[in-house]
Design a protein around this nucleic acid. Structure first.
Lengths: 209, 209
DNA sequence: GTAAGTTGCCTAAAACCTGTAGGCAAATGA
DNA sequence: TCATTTGCCTACAGGTTTTAGGCAACTTAC
């Protein structure tokens, strides 16, 4: 019988496309086998298991996002860079919701460390060079940007902004403006507490619900 | 034979607990049946199907989060309210990762409109009363806060901050500080573009990757 | 060109999850 | 007590995951 020409790369690519069409959750070894018109068991020579397949799709998505971001950042700095970076993030998620969901897959530490997620974080840090932040504040700012971009896009994709005005794109622009303003006027860190002093701001809510 | 005393409520509650133990993804009708030491088919008299079960867990989580937030907000305003609200959000997610994941389930519009998610959004808006924002900017600010809180917590839970200093709790505090500063110095909206003018800032990246 | 070795896809089968249909027994209530 | 409702059951059909082992199609070496 003719061979289908399966490879891990082709499976990953097809899996990514399938994810964008029907959602990352629906990407299954069976569905992929149907797509290649091949028996399910055949795929197990190319990917270890279902989780391996999903991980490969996640890594592909992270790679693509980092590539887009790198291209968008080239030659830009300051607010221009921040805006370009933010838009790449949102545009990618909207164009490729399945891959974007894949990129959110929790990777085991070694895989994550070897992924393009690291490049992404480095680029976020590079953007901050256009702002005047103390070294000790940079990680906080990186996490703020990462969290905000991811959170906003994630809420938008899940339909959270669908039924209220204004359109999500308008808020997005204003939010990037606001983050730019925030980075230019980053609040001073509070004085470090004396070593033996009680914590200055106890958690306000740590009870079990 | 003795009856197990199943009800939709008990199933939902047990499902929520199971989600916190093994992850929302792993909550299945079968697993729940095992928990009650009952045959799988028996559950289908109480919940319509697997999706119905998950939706009920999501609604429970949204309800609990809104209750916690309401309690934390009582008697507070300004930065105090912002901090309390933010901490409720993060603390709930850390204490109940499975329920938190459930709360992210995409609900159909009617279900979402009837859920406690609405209350949550109203509380966010209430917090903004402590700041001096133009009416037209409030929705943007609500979306910024929602996105940032959700995004940060989501990244933290998925382990994104595990392998870098400082601890996630430290950045969290600084980020809430920064958001407070931002809300107190919200940047002016740019002048509205003339009706027939070209868009002032074309998207920087809308190509297909 | 052909024999040997490798690779690729196959069949078969076990285990688990979802969901439907119909049945019997326990609870309820007149 | 008898009829009805309710709750959990058995049985079954269909789908996904994963392993084991087999044969045919490629590749390579002589």
């Amino acid at each position: 019988m003719a061979r289908a020409g399966l490879t891990p790369q082709r499976l990953t690519q097809a899996g990514a496309e399938l994810a964008d069409e029907v959602g990352f959750e629906q990407v299954t070894v069976s569905a992929l086998a149907r797509h290649f018109d091949v028996k399910v068991a055949s795929l197990y020579s190319h990917v270890k298991n279902s989780h391996d397949l999903k991980t490969r799709i996640a890594l592909l998505a992270l790679e693509e996002m980092a590539d887009c971001a790198a291209e968008a950042l080239a030659g830009r700095s300051g607010k221009d860079a921040l805006t370009a970076f933010a838009n790449v993030y949102r545009d990618y998620a909207r164009a490729h919701p399945g891959r974007y969901a894949a990129a959110q897959l929790r990777l085991d530490p070694e895989t994550a460390a070897a992924s393009a997620g690291v490049r992404h974080a480095q680029m976020t840090r590079a953007i901050l060079r256009g702002y005047d932040l103390a070294e000790s504040e940079q990680t906080h700012a990186v996490r703020l940007l990462g969290g905000t971009f991811h959170g906003y896009v994630s809420l938008e994709l899940s339909g959270g902004f669908d039924h209220s005005a204004p359109p999500a794109a308008v808020s997005w622009t204003r939010i990037v403006d606001a983050l730019d303003a925030l980075l230019r006027n980053w609040p001073a860190a509070p004085a470090a507490p004396a070593p033996s002093a009680a914590p200055s701001a106890p958690a306000q809510n740590d009870r079990e619900i």
